[in-house]
């Protein structure tokens, strides 16, 4: 594909999915710096893989790109020891509830970023985008039962990761 064609295709796909990308990445990041970084990674990957975004599967592929970009941004964020304060997992009495919930949301977001790709996609579709299982099955190209299974496994993995984070502290 010529450079000019690449640019044209890129611009078309970006315009079509701009709102979707902004919404998904913001929900996954919940933090302006992380969001900006994830968006930059997403645009970069879109450009790198523009050939694969030509067909009908562009939306599904873009999903994977966005989730992968979010994971990368989160990996950059985690400090050298990768630790998270246990107090945030079990808020102390009197701790501001809203603050505690914001911190919990941050921890859950980080855990989602660490999920395997398909599980991450399933959990984002089900809970963050609030799709029904028919829609999830269609986007994941699987049966409704498989979609339920992916979501269920993702939830189990998430709980396990949060438990590990608690133990580590």
């Amino acid at each position: 594909m010529k450079h000019s064609e690449q640019v044209e295709l890129f611009n078309r796909i970006r315009a079509r999915y701009a709102m979707f990308l902004t919404s998904v990445l913001w929900k996954l990041a919940g933090d302006r710096e992380l969001f900006t970084e994830a968006m930059q990674y997403t645009l970069f990957e879109m450009w790198q893989r523009i050939d694969k975004l030509r067909g009908d599967n562009a939306g599904a592929y873009l999903y994977r790109i966005a989730l992968s970009a979010n994971s990368k941004a989160w990996r950059n964020r985690v400090g050298k020891n990768g630790r998270i304060n246990a107090d945030l997992l079990c808020p102390a009495p009197g701790q501001d509830e809203a603050l505690a919930r914001r911190e919990m949301a941050r921890i859950v977001r980080r855990a989602v970023a660490e999920l395997p790709a398909q599980q991450s996609q399933a959990i984002v579709m089900r809970y963050l985008e609030q799709h029904d299982y028919d829609a999830i099955a269609e986007k994941l190209n699987c049966t409704q039962a498989s979609a339920r299974s992916h979501v269920s496994k993702a939830m189990a993995t998430l709980k396990g990761r949060l438990a590990k984070l608690t133990e580590r502290e």
Partner: peptide, 22 residues
């Protein structure tokens, strides 16, 4: 918590950040 995250609207300044990145 997951649902609450899903219900969060995208703030205007975040949309601007997306435009700026673009």
């Amino acid at each position: 918590i997951l649902k609450a995250i899903g219900n969060e609207p995208v703030p205007d300044d975040v949309r601007q950040l997306a435009q700026k990145a673009s």
